[in-house]
């Protein structure tokens, strides 16, 4: 068996190094090696989006990225979305709109929505639904999630004005 890889990354703005086996996914590295358990495993085959992270500016299913592939990457996980004690507007909107029930899909959805609003300031409902279609939620029927993203988009627009 191959030895462990030495991986150097930036996670949530801080330099992070870890050792991982060749077969370990980035999700497994985040959760089991680094203790960043906010990213969730719902399927481990790229179909539920609960493990969504931002990797070098793109949203990815961290279960489909090998830990070793993350060498040199800049990664944002759910743990890096809030600014210290201040929630991100998407996080606040999720709370105010009651856009979560069990909450297990929530980290992935918030990371994906944050990336959307960084890419597009005023997405249409259609655009929000298309962008978030990778993130399965079984509890809410998505209605309040879409509304939360709309609210966050509106608030971020107000702040930038």
């Amino acid at each position: 068996m191959h030895g462990k890889y030495h991986v150097r990354t930036t996670i949530n703005g801080e330099a992070v190094e870890f050792l991982c086996e060749p077969r370990q996914s980035l999700l497994e590295c985040l959760r089991d090696i680094l203790g960043l358990t906010g990213s969730k495993e719902g399927c481990n085959d790229g179909n539920c989006g609960a493990c969504t992270v931002i990797l070098d500016g793109r949203i990815v299913n961290s279960c489909l990225v090998l830990g070793a592939e993350a060498d040199g990457a800049d990664i944002t996980t759910i743990e890096g979305v809030a600014r210290g004690s201040r929630l991100h507007p998407v996080q606040r909107a999720f709370l105010e709109q009651a856009a979560l029930q069990c909450g297990v899909c929530t980290p992935g959805l918030i990371v994906a929505a944050k990336a959307l609003l960084e890419a597009e300031a005023q997405p249409s409902e259609e655009r929000i639904r298309f962008w978030l279609a990778n993130n399965l939620c079984r509890c809410t029927g998505y209605d309040k999630i879409v509304r939360a993203v709309q609210q966050a988009a509106h608030e971020m627009q107000e702040v930038n004005r």
Binding site: R31, G35, L36, T37, G38, S39, K40, E41, T77, I78, E79, V81, A82, L87, Q91, F94, L95, E96, A98, L100, G103, V104, T106, P107, I110
Partner: peptide, 23 residues
């Protein structure tokens, strides 16, 4: 009324501890 749920902050920040997260 519609107060913010008590476990809300934990669940939007990834801090909430689900079964698979236990170490």
């Amino acid at each position: 009324t519609r107060p913010i749920r008590h476990d809300g902050a934990d669940k939007v920040t990834g801090r909430a501890l689900y079964g698979a997260d236990l170490e």
